[in-house]
Design a protein around this nucleic acid. Structure first.
Lengths: 287, 287
DNA sequence: GCCCGGTGATACCTACCGGGTATGACAGGG
DNA sequence: CCCTGTCATACCCGGTAGGTATCACCGGGC
């Protein structure tokens, strides 16, 4: 019952994602024939057919789908081990174990909460150094999984807490953010149906893992860009109430009656055993 | 930023657990010198000292501790990927994806619940085949992590749900299980202090990961052995109420007033995307 | 005090295998 | 019908994982 080498997992995942040996080999910086052979060896060792080689392309079998999912998790775990070990080791050089935590935060969100948290934690007696790592939309999960971060602030239902330990920090409603001059901006409340159906203001589309949901609205990369597009009267967006903190004068925020409440959690990899992390969590839950 | 190979992780974990290169090499089925060299290379590649080679033995640095923990998780993830892929692949040979779930259950526990669950699930229209895998005390977590099982029944607070998704199934109190003839067996309730302080009946000690808590009581491996020792008047044990199902005539169960309630969960690896699993969970939560 | 046992590290060699290049087999499309 | 794009095969080479022999070092025992 030999283990899979991470090299094999990397190879298979590349092929499974590209569904094309040539492109996968290029992405891996190697030639195509050894890649083909490596996948064949992998299939032999597992005793399972992973890819269906049809004429004109490759497709995943059921087992291939499984290996793609599980293999990604395993690869993340391996790179997390390397990263965290390096960080823990850099600590040793400076005498005692220098505590340093990487906190992943969706770029631009959590302004007030983050401020309060960092201030409160810094006041703790044995506070570790906190590095705030801004992340793309919903990227915090991957960052926790592959060790780029030690702890993250997350928004359910946008982020999934699956696989992490977490504590609830706060709950808030959502608001529609409109151009200040728009007729709907005068309303005291709106419904989701209202904002998704404005003919002249298509709903903005956020990227999620590099993919945008379909729709007429503009594709949004970062919050500044979105803020500008809203101010220009080109789009409308839905945000947690705390987004009011970064609104411009040309923006208007109207509460949504039927949007699901957004819950902010602090989340960390299950089984983390770090005193610094425990302290940060304690501070966060006391806010 | 090269990944760690699982071979390197296996090697390091062996050394970190044995704290002895020779024994670790033997366990790995290889000679000691290549193992030494492999660990040195690993330290160089990570740029971190993992082991402190003192005269007369080896000890872990902080980074070594980190790599031991994270590396175990990564190795588990890799073997889980292999195992689950093999299982998913065996499926393909028999036509459609043959659904088969491995359910880990603490040996001897969950009698009634398990019975009801299996019966109810078997009655579902598209029920998968369920393989019940009895596990040692609190071993279900490891089984889920390394892919030996797909889903498990767990008891909090004994099992930790960290890192898994789970649903609560039932809550029950705990009882002390005594020899029927013992004076305390006549009491209608007991407290934890009562049972931990019986001079002639030391509390039984369960193994957890092969380690026994300290104390005067006998070391218990399985439930039958425990049942016998209780019946013989040699020990006393604390169990969830549902343990009444397997009591002997010579046993007496007395409710404990101050023992924490035991919650039974059904748990599965986060991100599992299996229809069969979803069906089983749905059935379980409806019981 | 000296030697012996046991530790991990070093030196050197071999053989396997991971990777490269060249080429084949095969199907679809112009 | 050829041409193109795909993955598989054949063959070669070099790096490296692993083995054996040995060293350096320290602690304990006589």
């Amino acid at each position: 019952m030999d283990d899979l080498e991470t090299r094999e997992l990397r190879y298979f995942i590349a092929v499974a994602e590209e569904l094309h040996f040539g492109r996968a080999a290029e992405r891996l910086g190697m030639a195509q024939p050894p890649l083909s052979r490596a996948i064949q060896q992998l299939e032999r060792r597992l005793g399972v057919r992973l890819l269906e080689r049809n004429r004109r392309g490759v497709s995943l079998t059921g087992a291939g789908e499984m290996l793609l999912h599980e293999g990604r998790a395993a690869l993340d775990a391996a790179t997390a081990a390397a990263r965290r070990t390096r960080r823990a080791g850099g600590a040793d050089s400076s005498g005692g174990p220098r505590n340093r935590l990487v906190l992943a935060v969706k770029a631009g969100a959590f302004h007030e909460l983050l401020h309060k948290l960092l201030d409160a934690y810094a006041a703790e007696p044995d506070a570790a150094e906190i590095e705030v790592l801004p992340s793309g939309t919903c990227e915090q999960e991957g960052m926790l999984r592959d060790g780029r971060a030690d702890v993250a602030l997350m928004h359910t239902p946008f982020n999934s807490l699956a696989g992490f330990d977490s504590e609830e920090l706060m709950t808030e409603g959502q608001v529609a953010i409109l151009p200040a001059g728009h007729p709907l901006a005068a309303r005291s409340t709106l419904s989701l149906a209202d904002v998704s159906d404005i003919p002249d203001l298509p709903l903005a589309r956020w990227s999620r893992d590099g993919v945008y949901p379909p729709g007429p609205g503009p594709e949004i990369h970062d919050q500044t860009q979105l803020a500008q597009l809203i101010a220009l009267g080109r789009t409308v967006a839905v945000f947690p109430e705390s987004a009011r903190a970064w609104l411009w004068a040309e923006h208007a925020a109207v509460p949504l009656t039927d949007a699901p409440p957004v819950v902010t959690h602090i989340a960390w990899p299950a089984h983390s055993r770090s005193l610094a992390l425990a302290g940060l969590i304690r501070t966060a839950t006391r806010l």
